[in-house]
Amino acid sequence: MSDDFPISVAGLNHSFGIGEARKQAIFDVSFTIKRGSLTVLMGPSGSGKTTVLTLMGCLRDVQDGSVRLLGHELKGAAPAVSEDLRRRLGFIFQAHNLHGSLTALQNVLMGLQVHSYGDPQQNYRAAQHALTLLGLGDRLDYLPANLSGGQKQRVAVARALVGNPEVIFADEPTAALDRESGMTVVAMLKKLGAMRGTTTVMVTHDNRILEMADRIITLEDGRIVADR
């Protein structure tokens, strides 16, 4: 089951705040996501899509309901289990979140070192290859401050993909990219799904991507209102 459906969400509820300030953001959300698919979470701002994304990505504790990721129940999971699972994931953030003191190549290397320190030369070649695929072969030694917004985002994509993650969580990954670069990234994610079975869950408002998505889940006010 977990091989075919790496993500399974059932009866998920989530609230923020405590006491009288407590506000429920997610209401009884349930779905499963098929291996190798590209799933888009849509919805207006505040609909809860990012919250669902962070819960699936082991970045928040599950309060109520069930989230199974790669065969592991996340509700009540020990921090070490969450850390181990996160090593099998790739994250692409809306803000690139590159380390300002590291070059493009070094930032991508960080995506490899998390698995094991491994053979430095092999890691170096893999990071260089990932950047070259994203059109940054001539920017390896550039610091983020010397890269454009689109280039930074491509470095962040390379960092997320270089470790061959089983699931990729992406939050508006193409927001900072021009059309061609955006399509290149999404096409790459689709290709990874087809070739390696990499599953992608993406929050986006980009209509260009919707056309390439295998599935679109729409959230409003913390509830699923459409799933197609």
Binding site: G57, L59, E83, D84, L85, R86, R87, R88, L89, F91, F93, A95, N97, L98, H99, G100, M110, G111, V114
Partner: peptide, 15 residues
Amino acid sequence: DHLSEYATFKAMGYR
């Protein structure tokens, strides 16, 4: 100054 970078590394699974 590097909290966001460290948070990114945490998200990536660094202990």
